[in-house]
């Protein structure tokens, strides 16, 4: 598992799956439109996030993850719920 903040780890997974320059990944970056993820990339990204954070993301939840920031917020909220 990657160490660092949730945001750093999400960016690391996005970089690993999409092979884009991490310097160009912002919280506002739209995964499909700006980072160029096709439908298979999007599925791979969700699987990789599940693997990285050892949790499951439903299809409905995945559909709501439009930007990198959405993914970060979603995972942070899930983590809060788990520790609450």
């Amino acid at each position: 598992m990657t160490t660092g903040t949730i945001e750093q780890r999400v960016i690391s997974v996005v970089t690993e799956v999409l092979r884009v320059d991490p310097a160009k990944i912002m919280p506002s970056s739209r995964i499909k439109e700006e980072l160029g993820a096709d439908s298979l990339d999007q599925v791979s990204l969700i699987m990789s996030l599940e693997d990285e954070f050892k949790g499951s993301i439903t299809d409905d939840e995945a559909a709501g993850l439009v930007t990198v920031g959405d993914a970060v917020n979603f995972i942070e909220k899930k983590a809060e719920l788990q520790t609450a």
Binding site: E16, V17, S44, M47, S48, D51
Partner: peptide
Amino acid sequence: VNRIERMQ
């Protein structure tokens, strides 16, 4: 083989 491929 990378981690992404391994999952697939």
